[in-house]
Nucleic acid binder design. Structure first.
Lengths: 242, 242
DNA sequence: GAATGCGTTCCGTGACACGGAACCCGGACC
DNA sequence: GGTCCGGGTTCCGTGTCACGGAACGCATTC
């Protein structure tokens, strides 16, 4: 029951947006009677809402999701620095954390005329395909790095690093530079510089600047990203984040 | 079962954690065996996570919450304008919607040296106590205004408007000015200017600038807030928000 | 070593989740 | 009008699994 209800909620991903009863039923592989009851119950709870044409995820979910401590505290600490970085660069800024073998985006400041990146707040992408992901990976435990290298690597574009050997090299370079560079690995026409954020010596997040390839000037962007990440690390360690 | 599990999740508000088993049990008025099972199940799902000392809300909740369509689309439309406003003022910016008799904050850009405001993304405050809330209220249906006026008004500070008569006056002034002013009604030492955001003729949100009283210059802030809100309204009406 | 407080396991009972069947309703088609 | 069709809703008998009292484990405290 509990588990099935979350199956239903997951059926709404990634759009959150309107699904008919039937669609939910078949996405979840549930008999429509059951899907109906679950949706009705979830509606009563406020976890989903009815629209003229189907169901959408509900506000109560938004409220609860916003109070998840890790993400909330991290955002709180990072946002001012992300704004600074945005002002300095006027480009799209990302903040992400690692979850399993994915990066989950926690915050995103979108530039006015930015390209359509595959990232979304609350969305996940493979670690090896994005700047934030690679920065997180390069400073993760050797065990995790090994696990990622051992598995087949997913790709987002033709430029995504899907060769374990090349990824290992890239990780070495990131560790040496303290920054992760990414060119068209997540989105054709886009590039990115990312820097890790530490708390008590371990990576907890990473932030990045994403720019159209035509405006990609590493020497200008790199110091800004680095100081921003450093600022967040300091803010985190100062506060009593749990 | 389903309902009880959401009772448990709500027990974590407003902080999101960490709570001990016992605390959850008594907040929910559930026998501890039941609370234990629910927490265990929810942990398996990813909706809560274990920490050394108790349980916290889990990342899966954050991910799901981020995909709730209404809030996501509103944020998407509003963020660029909020950034503009932030740059122009370098003060804390809020975006909120109404839910029942509360304002729910959807986005918040925090200035570096801002005072500790009671607002949180995903948090709720009484409509009558904040700039965003008053702006939303003043442009709501007469029925809703009457309902708010009829009920006992909550307060956040000694300056909060808790007298129905005075609130009605304030609403009139807001409607006349197209802006809501707020001085120390939400937080001692803080003031705020808020403006409503419309979609197809009805208020759907409001945004505000919050400043320490010492820096409160209405004549400078008011036009900036107004243009930002107007910009968001226009962006909303242009897009096919559902 | 008794007591206390919290977390965990066990287990018998009964409520209620489950889902097949049947029904309703509006629209499309003839 | 009649018929069909696809989605949504209601009904209800069956069997399961959620429920929660009891009892135990295990620190910590006095």
């Amino acid at each position: 029951m509990l588990e099935k209800s979350w199956l239903v909620l997951d059926a709404f991903r990634p759009t959150g947006g309107p699904l008919r009863l039937i669609e939910v039923a078949e996405r979840c592989q549930l008999p429509k009677t059951t899907a109906y009851r679950l949706l009705t119950d979830l509606t009563a709870i406020g976890a989903v809402e009815r629209r003229e044409r189907g169901y959408v995820l509900g506000r109560r979910l938004f409220e609860l999701g916003s109070t998840v401590p890790l993400e909330r505290d991290l955002r709180h600490a990072a946002l001012p620095f992300m704004h600074d970085l945005y002002e300095a660069t006027r480009e799209t800024i990302h903040l992400g954390v690692r979850d399993g073998l994915d990066v989950v985006y926690v915050e995103k400041l979108r530039a006015h005329e930015s390209l359509a990146l595959p990232s979304r707040v609350g969305g996940r992408l493979p670690l090896n395909c994005t700047g934030v992901g690679k920065a997180l990976l390069a400073y993760s435990s050797p065990d995790l790095i090994d696990e990622v290298l051992a598995r087949p690597l997913r790709r987002l574009t033709a430029h995504s690093i899907v060769d374990a050997k090349r990824l290992e090299e890239a990780i070495g370079q990131i560790q040496a530079a303290g920054l992760a560079y990414e060119r068209e690995e997540a989105q054709i026409g886009g590039a990115c510089i990312a820097a890790p954020i530490f708390r008590e010596g371990t990576v907890v997040a990473a932030l990045s600047v994403s720019v159209p390839l035509s405006r990609f000037h590493p020497t200008r962007l790199a110091p800004a990203v680095k100081t921003a990440a450093l600022g967040v690390s300091r803010a985190l360690n100062r506060s009593t984040l749990r």
